[in-house]
């Protein structure tokens, strides 16, 4: 049997060999060690067994639905990237150019020489002929930033042997719609607004309005709105949004198990005590449900916040003892 140091090294090599990362020249060395060392042979078996066991958690391909949903969401987000990114890209291109030039001092000198010559020559020509030819592409209204509503530039083609270029660009065209909160189109837009990850104000407003509609019982029985509220309650980074979503879900805690589970999850997992407190209030009408009782019991024992522990205990105390 090899000494301890050698076994330690052999065991590192075993892990690498199981994952096909052991350099070829170290293979024979490890084999010799294994032939003489029972302990390391067992180690090899154990690492191989681990590798097989871990493969029991399969790597699943993302579903077509997930791919489509993700692409759609990304497209919406890319469309919403503010025009600032156009300027950002210009800046990045400039920075990239500078980086390239820095890495090629000879090219810098060349560019300078060519630039000075061309500049001098064109200055001379302009002075001589007094001919200015420009082709304004964008006609901004006075006082308006000409780049303000440009979403992006999709292609640039230079006409051969001329100074003319054709730039294809997309403008952002904001539109406005007015209507009742019960209007399906308005609701659809509110749902889109609720998914706006870039502007928390819009998200907050949209979810707040949808939640109010649900609380008031205004045709809120369809899936998408309830799903949006559940999603916001689970994942939104803003506490205000999560609280609003929770309020909106109140009417459904009693009848919709999904809603109840989501509220229980908020009570267990949410990092903000205000959300957890409100979740307890929402659960009061369904306190007799066994999973609600279990969660309340756990929260009454383990929550970091003493007030939440007390509130859970109070709700539990109201439940008539069945057994």
């Amino acid at each position: 049997m090899g000494n301890t140091m050698k076994c330690e090294l052999a065991q590192e090599m075993i892990a690498l060999s199981v994952y096909g990362e052991l350099p070829d020249d170290q293979g024979p060395q490890l084999e010799r060690h294994l032939a003489a060392c029972e302990l390391c042979r067992r180690e090899l078996e154990a690492v191989q067994a681990l590798s097989k066991a871990m493969s029991l958690l399969p790597v699943e391909e993302p579903s077509a639905n997930l791919i489509a949903r993700s692409r759609l969401r990304l497209e919406e987000a890319l469309d919403a990237v503010p025009h600032g990114s156009w300027l950002l890209r210009c800046w990045q291109r400039l920075a990239q150019g500078v980086w390239r030039l820095r890495s090629a001092p000879v090219a810098v000198s060349g560019v300078l020489v060519v630039g000075l010559t061309a500049g001098g020559y064109s200055g001379y020509r302009v002075g001589e002929h007094d001919a200015v030819k420009t082709a304004p592409v964008i006609h901004p209204t006075p006082g308006e930033d000409p780049m303000a509503d440009i979403a992006n530039v999709s292609s640039i083609v230079q006409e051969p042997n001329t100074e003319n270029v054709e730039v294809v660009y997309n403008r952002l065209q904001p539109e406005t719609i007015r209507g009742s909160l019960d209007d399906p189109q308005i609701r659809q837009l509110l749902l889109v607004g609720a998914r706006n990850r870039l502007n928390s104000g819009v998200r907050d407003n949209s979810l707040g309005l949808l939640a109010n509609e649900c609380r008031a019982g205004h045709q809120c029985d369809d899936g998408p709105i309830r799903d949006a509220l559940i999603g916001a309650m689970r994942y939104d980074k803003s506490v205000a949004v999560r609280l609003k979503a929770l309020e909106g879900l109140q009417p459904y805690v009693a009848d919709d198990v999904r809603v109840r589970d989501a509220v229980l999850e908020a009570l267990m997992k949410d990092t903000d005590p205000r959300v957890r407190t409100q979740a307890i209030e929402l659960l009061e009408p369904v306190e007799a449900d066994s999973s609600v009782r279990e969660v309340l019991h756990t929260v009454s024992l383990r929550d970091d916040n003493p007030e939440i522990r007390t509130a859970s205990r109070q709700v539990l105390d109201q439940i008539p003892q069945v057994q």
Partner: peptide
Amino acid sequence: PPSSAQLSATSTP
């Protein structure tokens, strides 16, 4: 696995 000494035939996921 049946054989432990065959490094070349180690199972990979």
